[in-house]
Simulated scan of single mutants.
Amino acid sequence: MPTLLIADDHPLFRAALRSAAAEAAPDVATCEAETLDGVLQRLEADDAIDLVLLDLHMPGNHGLAGLAAIRAQYPAVAVVLVSANEDPQVVRRALDHGVAGYIPKSASLDELRDAIRTVLACEQWLPPALRAAVARAQSAPGDADLAARLASLTPQQFRVLSLVAEGLLNKQIADRLDVQERTVKAHMSAIFEKLGARNRTHAGVILRGLEISDPAQHVAR
């Protein structure tokens, strides 16, 4: 039985995705989260989750950073991004960072069902109206290399990197993760080497480079 995590802060859209999932795969089990922290907690608690439908701009997630976090910490879990952003360049970046599909919030119920069915069959899905434009879109310089470098981080190293990007110091990170400060320093050394970062500020800038502005932040998504 496939298990799907619907991650979106809008109840009505979660309901639409839940309905589409039930019709696409009658034996599917679903669970939900409203924030990126909630997504990561769900994944930590339930190793049976096969697929995450992740809102590109839900609370705690500002673009591709949430995707990178899931890919680094739970590499066996497939991720489909869901967004009102239909910029082919954004879709291209998402693909370069390992997304299994991209669903615009303008998608019809038939398209939602098709997307879920396709990804559960281990195939990639893109909206038909965007496929040609995405195929023409150029990858952002260094994105594929960055995706590989981020994927090389261990789950704990990625957690440390995320906290560095938030501006926390080593002692604060150690307290947050309940580890020794020397352990954090060891993780930082590995992060610098794997990312080619000069220092903690540079490492944080690299991760924040995955942020994508929300074109609908002043209107309802």
Rank of each mutant, 00 (worst) to 15 (best):
S162T: 14
L150P: 01
D178M: 09
S152E: 11
K185I: 02
K171N: 08
L168A: 08
I173K: 12
T154V: 07
M188H: 04
L177H: 04
L161Q: 08
L177W: 03
V160P: 05
D178Q: 14
A151N: 09
K171C: 02
R176F: 06
N170R: 10
V179G: 08
T183E: 12
N170Y: 07
Q157F: 03
P155W: 02
L150H: 01
A174Y: 01
P155E: 04
S152F: 02
L153W: 01
S152I: 06
A190Q: 13
L163S: 02
S189E: 14
V184S: 04
Q156I: 10
P155N: 04
D175C: 06
Q180K: 15
Q157E: 15
L177K: 09
A174S: 04
E166W: 00
V184R: 02
G167S: 05
S162V: 07
Q157V: 04
V184P: 03
Q157P: 05
A190C: 05
K171M: 11
T154D: 14
L153T: 02
L161K: 04
E181N: 06
A186Q: 15
L168Y: 10
Q180T: 09
V179Y: 05
L168F: 11
I173F: 07
E166H: 06
L153K: 05
T154K: 13
Q180G: 12
L161R: 07
Q157N: 10
K171L: 10
S189C: 03
A190E: 15
G167I: 03
E166C: 05
Q156Y: 01
A151D: 11
P155Y: 02
L177N: 07
E181H: 00
Q180E: 14
L169D: 13
V184A: 03
D178V: 10
L168D: 11
A151E: 09
E166N: 06
V179A: 13
V164D: 10
V179I: 15
K171E: 12
T154W: 06
A165E: 07
E181S: 00
L163N: 01
S189M: 08
E181G: 00
D178K: 14
Q157S: 10
T183K: 12
N170T: 13
Q156K: 12
Q172A: 15
D178T: 12
L161A: 07
V160R: 07
V164Y: 08
V164G: 11
D178H: 11
R159T: 06
L163D: 01
T183C: 07
Q156H: 07
L168R: 12
V160L: 05
V160S: 09
Q156S: 12
V179Q: 13
S162E: 15
E166Q: 15
L169M: 12
R159A: 14
Q172W: 06
